[in-house]
Design a protein around this nucleic acid. Structure first.
Length: 155
DNA sequence: GCCAACGTTGGC
DNA sequence: GCCAACGTTGGC
């Protein structure tokens, strides 16, 4: 059974439309231990992804993706020229991990954070309460509700 | 191992 | 651009 995740990206940096253009991408640059652990330990190919635009107006879920590669060391942590360079990362201890994600679909209209807050069944979504976590698990029920909202289906 | 200082995230 | 929330760092 695939798991469900919500991944945040700032659309000015890398939006769902960039992902559609590229087909897939490596999710580099996550520098938070809880988010890292989810990618390193739990994410598997075939897991389902809600693609969330943060720092946007409005913020919200912009589409769907899938995990296309399980967690592996994030090379940007070892690259001194990268914005994501971490001098404490090493070959023996990569410290930071990333996954690959593949484009699935862009919603016809954004499911805004306000929409999420207002939707029955989403009261416990982490994005509403633990808004800073950039990789977070989503329950099957939450996933289905958000997908229906994103596709404009009536419940 | 505590906790103050600091840096970052992200909604507004 | 502001700033509250919160994660991380480092001195003790």
């Amino acid at each position: 059974m695939p798991r469900n995740w919500l991944l945040k990206s700032e659309p000015d940096v890398y939006s769902i439309h960039d992902l559609r253009r590229d087909g897939s991408t490596s999710w580099e640059g996550v520098r938070n231990y809880q988010a890292r652990n989810f990618m390193r330990d739990d994410a598997r190919p075939g897991d389902r992804v809600l693609y969330y635009h943060s720092n946007a107006s409005p913020p919200g879920v912009a589409g769907l993706a899938t995990v296309s590669r399980e967690g592996y060391p994030d090379p940007s942590a070892r690259d001194p020229r990268s914005d994501y360079f971490d001098p404490k990362a090493s070959d023996e201890d990569p410290r930071w991990y990333m996954i690959n994600v593949a484009f699935q679909e862009a919603f016809p209209a954004l499911v805004s954070l306000d929409d999420l807050r207002a939707a029955p069944g989403l009261e416990k979504m982490l994005v509403i309460n633990k808004s800073r976590l950039s990789v977070q698990p989503v329950t099957d029920e939450e996933y289905e509700i958000v997908v229906r909202m994103g596709r404009g289906e009536r419940t």
